[in-house]
Amino acid sequence: MQTRILVEEVGKTYVKPTGEVVHALSGVDMTLESGTFYSFVGPSGCGKTTLLHMLHGLLSPTEGQIFFNGQKVTGPTTNKALVFQQALLLPWRNVVDNIKFGLENDRTKSDEERRKICDRYIQIVGLRGFEGHYPHELSGGMQQRVNLARALAVNPEILLMDEPFGSLDAQTRQLMQEELQRMVDWKRSGKIVIFVTHDIEEAVFLADKVFVFSFRPGRIMKEIDIPFPTPRSLAIKEDPTFLKIKHEIWNLLAGEARKAMAE
């Protein structure tokens, strides 16, 4: 069956501890299909992370609703996995045990199966030889590989990524973007991948489709299909079509970014 997510008129309003009312997101409509990589791009504070958390079920919308395969999303489930902005690895667990963290809650698998799955993802994210290392012994890039492997290991139908490369240095970031395509392999596995970033180039490079968000309250300003076949090499960042799309998004966002800066 084709899996899909329906987002209907979703909005989120919350009250800060100071009493200030914040309209984070408003009137968001979208349909997300399996085997597709989506990027959410927008200025800081456009509610894209909030939307990601609502898709996962960690937060619930204050307006509208979200359906996954016809069922309303009411909380986190094991078929959705989140890759966090900060790697959030448990410092007392080594690499293998961190990757196993989500898997442990799957009662249908034996210890032996879990071990095999972990081993496969250690291979996929390229951490062979680091199985016994603790998070503080790993570089930022390697920590994010563990973060990704932990999410992939539960074999989610929906993979939600919250600016996972935001804290990496520029070179590592480029290489991780290229490698991510192989590691996630969404076309073959039929996953829905959602990648939140404020880096326009990153959004365009990775996605099959980019959603451009406005500043608070976040709305979808434009949906852009990216015509390049996947997997892509970093060389396409020089392609005239790529640059044209990048500039188009930048033109949409420049005004919004200024609003964000003024706050």
Binding site: L58, A81, L88, N105, V154
Partner: peptide
């Protein structure tokens, strides 16, 4: 954040203590 991590991966409440 770590509690959120536990919630995100559907760790049962009682196990959040031990894990």
């Amino acid at each position: 954040e770590f509690r959120m991590l536990g919630m995100a991966f559907c760790v049962p409440k009682r196990q959040i203590w031990f894990k």
